[in-house]
């Protein structure tokens, strides 16, 4: 195996360790839209990074943080926010695309930011991806039980002396970090898929929340192998290939339940 493929595999596997448990929480809390809004904002982060000469990772992290807190705040106000979230998501995406075109930088491959370019992952990228994934995993494990009870019922959490709003902060931070580290692997448009699909595939096959989160990691890892195998064998794009493989596992899981 050549180095690129090993790096690509390691990147996708690292990401799976974060997206499995985080995606499970997002599925339980019906927050799929939050993932989309935050990840679409990544493109704006790319534009700002290029414009101000910052590392791409930092620009995306900054914008994703702002977006993640904005959508969380909107949600806490308690109105129906579906349409507002949708507006924010597409606004951030389109503003990012417009801004990138204005930076007038030759050689900016928009395609790579939208769909990922995992075959071009460098050792430094790997450090960022694994560093981010391990931080997310550690944060979620640390707050796991309070997050579970807050997710199940906010009032029950309060009665047990847990502050659901504070627990949500961990989730918001984790969402921003996962967007920042996964842009290189699956791109801004497919981060939401990496959060949703492995968790959804694990749902029908699990009996406990922990089981579902762990199985979502396993499914993410298998999908990484599948997508990258397809990439080297048939020269397909790696990010979308990983998502396709995860979706196939989702359908297979659904069939096995029949």
């Amino acid at each position: 195996m050549d180095n690129n493929l090993v790096y690509a595999l390691l990147a996708a596997i690292g990401l799976s360790f974060a997206t499995g448990p985080l995606g499970s929480l997002i599925v339980w809390r019906r927050m799929a839209y939050f993932g989309d809004a935050t990840s679409h904002a990544a493109i704006l982060g790319v534009a700002l990074s290029i414009g101000f000469g910052l590392p791409i990772f930092l620009g995306i992290l900054g914008v994703a943080l702002v977006m993640a807190f904005a959508v969380t705040n909107l949600n806490n106000r308690g109105h129906s926010i579906d349409s507002t979230l949708g507006v924010l998501a597409y606004f951030a995406l389109s503003l990012g695309l417009v801004a990138i075109s204005l930076t007038d930088q030759p050689g900016v491959e928009l395609h790579d930011f939208l769909f990922g370019d995992v075959m071009a992952v460098t050792a430094q990228d790997l450090l960022i991806i694994w560093g981010g994934a391990i931080s997310i995993l550690a944060g979620l494990i640390w707050r796991w039980v309070p997050l579970l009870i807050s997710t199940l019922n906010a009032d029950l959490a309060v009665a047990s002396g847990i502050n659901p709003k504070r627990e949500q902060l961990v989730l918001t931070l984790a969402l921003a970090v996962v967007v920042a580290v996964s842009i290189k692997v699956v791109g801004a448009l497919l981060i939401g898929a990496m959060l949703l699909i492995p968790a959804a595939a694990a749902r029908g096959l699990s009996r406990t929340p922990e089981g579902m989160a762990a199985l979502a990691i396993v499914i993410g890892v298998i999908a990484s192998f599948g997508g990258l195998f397809s990439a080297v064998t048939w020269d397909t794009p790696a990010g979308p290939g990983i998502v396709v493989a995860a979706a196939i596992l989702f359908f297979l899981g659904g069939l096995s339940k029949r």
Partner: peptide, 26 residues
């Protein structure tokens, strides 16, 4: 405080056995 809410809408998206529920959060 032991709290029994009016309706506990159980999110079917979360797999959860009764025993696991009884161990949340302690």
């Amino acid at each position: 405080i032991g709290y029994v809410p009016q309706r506990l809408a159980i999110e079917t998206a979360m797999p959860l056995t009764v025993a696991r529920f009884l161990s949340l959060p302690v």
